[in-house]
């Protein structure tokens, strides 16, 4: 009798790189989940620093992989997979990735007229898209009440602040990496 051929997953260098970066993002995500937050729903989102760095180093496709892997693996590890929290997390990630993808496409055009966006601009736009996507998803799926939108100003304020902070950290990491090359 022939033994069944062992299942082998072929991986290449790209896969390994994405996996390593996603692991880094998941670690930050979980450490952050352990920190108490003064306002429910508001947290710094420092794992997005990794998404931004990957975006600038390897492009949008890799950034999307890292971000979505973080959402899925992070929720599995925290036990929130397929819960409302997960739905909001996924909605936020998809919205910010859509925004990042759009601006990533536009950026060469902007560069042509001397207005190239750096990590800070990407970060703020991504964070605002993240929050808006989350609130709309919460309104559609979880709390069907317009009172939810009263939270929007607070959430967007937090998004802008943390977006700037994440962007600055990303830029510092990127310039450090470029120096070492």
């Amino acid at each position: 009798m022939n033994a069944p051929a062992p299942l082998r997953l072929r991986t290449n260098r790209d896969d390994h790189r994405i996996a390593a970066l996603a692991a880094l993002a998941i670690t930050i995500h979980i450490i952050e989940a352990a920190l108490p937050s003064p306002i429910p729903g508001v947290k710094p989102g420092l794992a997005n620093v990794i998404t931004l760095v990957v975006l600038f180093l390897y492009g949008w496709r890799d950034a999307a992989w890292v971000s979505l892997l973080r959402v899925f693996a992070g929720s599995l590890l925290l036990g929130s997979f397929l819960t409302p929290t997960f739905a909001l997390s996924l909605a936020g990630a998809c919205s910010s990735l859509a925004m990042l993808g759009l601006v990533w496409r536009l950026n060469p055009l902007l560069q042509g007229i001397g207005f190239k966006l750096g990590p800070v601009g990407f970060s703020v736009l991504g964070a605002c898209a993240h929050m808006t996507g989350q609130i709309i998803t919460a309104r559609l799926l979880i709390i069907p009440h317009d009172g939810l939108f009263h939270l929007l100003p607070l959430f967007i304020t937090a998004a802008v602040l943390f977006g700037i902070v994440s962007g600055i950290i990303s830029q510092l990491i990127l310039s450090r990496l470029r120096q070492e090359q």
Binding site: G114, G121, P153, V160
Partner: peptide, 23 residues
């Protein structure tokens, strides 16, 4: 050393901050 903000970044941040009072 590369600057932390590009000109476009500063515009985006300013627009975002100016949008807050409206929100």
């Amino acid at each position: 050393r590369t600057a932390i903000f590009t000109r476009a970044d500063i515009i985006v941040v300013c627009v975002a901050i100016l949008m807050l009072p409206w929100l």
